[in-house]
Design a protein around this nucleic acid. Structure first.
Length: 303
RNA sequence: GGGGGGGUACCAGAGCGGUCAAAUGGGGCAGACUGUAAAUCUGUUGGCUAAGCCUUCGGAGGUUCGAAUCCUCCUCCCCCCA
């Protein structure tokens, strides 16, 4: 069991706000290490388009969960939760403070609050259900769910194929209703968690997004995506910055248009992230440049 | 100079006498979200003292009980002929 003096500092915020830099500085201050909670920076083949920390930054502070997976690997939040918890046990052995940075809200929450246990989905079942959806449409999924798990049917977003697919998948593999197993439990972690949100006035954030996308293109985004073209069907590549370039490589749109689309979709992504983080009032919000304020806040809170 | 087409909400683009504050798409804004999550999905998008009222469909007049829709003039744009 972890010592309660141990603290996990969570740094969250919308994409391109400046989380990486801030986390590195804070990590240096506490002489600690960084756990990344970014569902796309996990993949070794995706670097430019995911704005991974560069080699110099990686050398400055030890990072975990950056590029540890291949786009061909199957991964999910639950695995992330387990791996992070294992790692934390080790890290807290030598540090009182560990920093977790990232923009993937679900992944952050899985670490902070835990996530219910479900068996891993069987790939065959998953593709079977997907086939039904593709062949017979969402209405068929709705009917299936209505019969198997009316309770969940009553509360899900009935138009969201992913949700329906997942619920059906769980019902079929466990033989039990999804709604009965989805406890929304709140695991008690043996360490303190302090959450810091980083944000900027919207116009400024959006400027940074535009600038960063241009930079990605200069660094060779198109080539990176081109090399991944054969694997475009993989889930990891259903990602902003990649799908738009695929459209360009398909000659559906020109480069300029693709770049514009990436910027637009990134702005939307940032908005969705903010919506997620604003769901709770657990975050103390700062601008990324307010390092002193952040440090003071953390010091007063981590005592 | 002659002939033709057209100017509709942030943009594109339907509508072509009432059921039009105006389809649809894009963009914007807001939201949902426990295993594909940078994914997936939803709502909203003229104004207001909001089941009502006010101001909108290039501009000005006119016809009509009634006009984004018809007529006249003006204006701007596009295409064809010279």
């Amino acid at each position: 069991m972890l010592n309660s003096r141990k603290t996990l500092i969570v740094i969250a915020g919308p994409t391109a706000v400046g989380k990486t830099d801030a986390a590195i500085k804070l990590s240096k201050y506490w002489n600690s290490e960084i756990i990344s909670a970014d569902s796309r920076q996990f993949f070794s083949e995706m670097s430019i388009g995911t704005a991974k920390p560069d080699q110099q930054q990686l050398n400055e502070v030890k990072h975990h969960f950056i590029g540890q997976l291949s786009i061909h690997d199957y991964y999910n939040v639950s695995k992330f939760e387990n791996e992070v918890m294992q790692l934390l046990e080790k890290l807290f052995g030598k540090h009182d403070v560990v920093i977790m940075v990232g923009g993937s809200g679900l992944y952050i929450d899985a670490v902070c609050k835990g996530i219910d246990n479900f068996p891993d989905p069987e790939p065959e079942l998953r593709s079977f259900l997907k086939g039904i959806y593709l062949d017979e449409g969402i209405v068929k999924l709705q009917e299936m769910l209505f019969h198997i798990d009316p309770e969940y049917y009553a509360k899900v977003d009935i138009n969201n194929p992913n949700r329906l697919l997942r619920a059906l998948e769980v019902c079929h593999t466990t033989g039990k209703k999804f709604s009965e197993q989805r406890l929304n439990s709140n695991k008690n972690r043996g360490f303190r968690i302090i959450k810091v949100g980083l944000n900027l006035p919207r116009p400024q954030l959006f400027n940074r997004i535009g600038f960063r996308v241009d930079q990605m293109v200069e660094k060779g985004l198109v080539e990176e995506v081109q090399n991944l073209l054969p694997f475009r069907h993989l889930n990891a590549l259903n990602t902003v910055g990649y799908k738009e370039i695929f459209d360009f490589l398909d000659s559906k749109i020109n480069l300029e248009q693709a770049i514009e689309n990436i910027k637009t979709n990134t702005r939307r992504y940032a908005k969705r992230q903010l919506t997620w983080f604003n769901r709770t009032d657990e975050y103390a919000w700062f601008e990324p440049s307010e390092l002193n304020e952040i440090t003071n806040y953390l010091l007063s809170g981590s005592k």
